[in-house]
Amino acid sequence: MTARAADNGYLSGSNLERVLRAGHFAVTAELGPPQSADGDVIRRKAALLKGNCDAVNITDNQTAIVRMSSIGAGTILVQEGLEPVIQMTCRDRNRLAIQSDLLGAYALGMRNVLCLTGDHQSFGNHPTAKNVFDIDSIQLVQMVAAMRDEGIFQCGEPFKGQEPRFFVGAAAAPFADPVEFRPYRLAKKVKAGADFIQTQLIYDVEAFRKYMEKVRELGLHEQTYILAGVGPLKSPGMARYMKKNVPGILMPDEIIERMQAAGAAWAGKSKDELTPEEKKARSRAWREAGIRICIELIQQLREIEGVAGVHIMAIEWEEAVEPIVSGAGLLPRPVVETSAPQKAASPGGS
């Protein structure tokens, strides 16, 4: 399928698309909606992110825990003048619900969708729920791209009026098993119509460099924009947890050691021996180190050919995004006018 641009030359015209097409190194961040109906939580988090990124991912019941809907939270972001990337999983909705929600999202001003499989419900707070998985993430990419490029529903029927024109994203887990298949799975997502990719958290730059070599060999970096996933660590414990428990994350010992070293002044004391002030100071020192490491990761990832931007996942720590983006020399964020793009629709140009 060939991606079809609108009259203005853009596929979706989203800010993220404009920034990427203009050749800027893109920055996206992530916002986790609350486990409540409190819209002010979104407004508070939005204020922390505004001006520090080109678009904000809003998770879709991440880790299968019920939260405010991505599209609901996204609507508030639009009102606050930020651009959302709606995350859409295949766990909770069948093809009817996904398409209908996307029509609504487009009408409410959303222009980017990240198509995901979704965490299994057994991880979340409703483990006895029935899951859906009517389609998978690759079929979802294909469906959203065809809505835009062919103006059709998944069943093949044409829209009766305006088609939703989304900038279509997909995820990549470069280090999940079987690792040899991962570049090819990315190729499938690109073939399905993924305009941009956001990767799982990268801490092992060397391993990611090797993955990107294969990605370039397949020419994928010229067909899609790849945003490398990064995230600041809050403590050495968080690093160790990720290494041990989160599939698809490679955590070099060197990073764990650096996090430990940051808390060296309080080492040797058990949790009970520390005063609340000491705990706070230690936490501050850890978090500063986490931000420093994150900045360095961005600088290293930026040097890899084919990396078009970074996706910063500061989970429940949106305050970290500004110092990271600023520290990485990525502020101010570019403003790209809506006028026709100078570059071709594909990342490699033509």
Partner: peptide, 21 residues
């Protein structure tokens, strides 16, 4: 496959086992 996927493994495949168990 715990998610009945048709186009290959999700990101939760590790050491040959499924992320859920």
């Amino acid at each position: 496959c715990s998610k009945s996927l048709l186009n290959g493994p999700c990101g939760g495949s590790e050491d040959g086992h499924c992320e859920i168990d």
